[in-house]
């Protein structure tokens, strides 16, 4: 159902980037940004899964994500 629609709202990503950077974003750069985000999310979830596993939880808990997201963010810093 949703697969037929777009993967992500491009306009939203553009607006987010624009708002945070106070700069325009070129035509297709938002796709790259979203790719970056995807990588980030993957990293986050992977680490969170490890963390959750270490804590003996089933699935990924919000605590695991909270613990991990900062490092993930650090990793994706420019």
């Amino acid at each position: 159902m949703a697969a037929s629609t777009s993967l992500y709202p491009r306009a939203t990503v553009k607006r987010i980037v624009k708002a945070h950077s106070n700069r325009g974003i070129s035509k297709n750069a938002d796709i790259m940004v979203f790719l970056d985000y995807t990588l980030f999310l993957q990293q986050l979830l992977r680490e969170a899964a490890i963390q959750a596993k270490l804590n003996g939880e089933r699935g990924i808990s919000p605590q695991a994500i909270r613990k991990v997201r900062e490092t993930a963010l650090q990793k994706f810093k420019g």
Partner: peptide, 18 residues
Amino acid sequence: AIMQATDWFFEQASEDLG
């Protein structure tokens, strides 16, 4: 939690991009 991280990520990324 993921959404929060997402928000931060976009904030950080777009600042860096800027």
